[in-house]
Simulated scan of single mutants.
Amino acid sequence: MIQRVHDLAQPLLESQGLELVLADLVLEDGRRILRIFLDKPGGITLDDCVRFAKEFGYLLDIHINIPGQYSLEVSSPGINRPLVKPWDFERFAGETVRVRTRIPIDGQRNFRGELLGITEGMVHIKLEEKTAAISFGEIHSARLCRD
């Protein structure tokens, strides 16, 4: 279903100059929530989120049958933005990141350091005393550390 949300959103995102950072359907306190995080060069505004939510809500109602009642939430990814696509790991090279892997690498699953980029599917992070090379496919979650 999330792939269908991505596909439906793409033309609208492009027309508004926005980027879909992450879409997720979650259950919180018995409520289903479709969360969409958007960004754009220079940062996303509240008006951007409101405009997208209004137009995308109509598209969802027409084209995707999400079973049951749900809420649509559209927002900024925040300062600690998630890194989801391979391009994110290139775009934010030089920033401090937190990465959690699916399985331990050298006995560790959590890494924090300077993102050096991605080459041939390997994400490179400069740690205190060494550089870690983590396969993009082994990353469970990653986000910027700006706080």
Score class of each variant (00 low, 15 high):
P77F: 03
R91E: 01
V97N: 09
N110G: 05
F52L: 07
E114C: 08
R32K: 15
V99D: 00
R81C: 01
G17D: 10
K85I: 03
L38W: 06
P77S: 04
L83E: 00
L116A: 09
S76H: 03
H124R: 14
G94S: 03
G78Q: 03
D24L: 02
Y70I: 00
R51L: 14
E120H: 11
G68S: 08
G121M: 04
Y70W: 09
R112V: 14
G78A: 02
E114H: 03
E73P: 02
D39A: 07
A23Q: 10
L72G: 01
D29G: 15
E73Y: 12
G107M: 11
R98V: 01
R31L: 14
P86Q: 11
N80Q: 05
H63W: 12
R35H: 12
F37R: 00
R98Q: 04
D24V: 12
L83F: 02
F37K: 04
T96H: 03
M122G: 00
N110Y: 13
L60Y: 06
A53I: 05
V123K: 02
L116P: 05
E114I: 06
I105E: 07
T96D: 06
G121W: 03
C49Q: 06
I33V: 08
N80K: 00
V21L: 10
H63R: 14
S76F: 07
R112T: 15
A93R: 07
L34H: 02
L8E: 07
N65W: 07
W87R: 15
S76E: 12
R81D: 04
I105R: 07
L72N: 10
R51A: 13
Q10D: 13
P104E: 07
N110S: 14
L115C: 00
F92M: 01
Q69D: 14
R102I: 08
I33N: 09
Y58D: 14
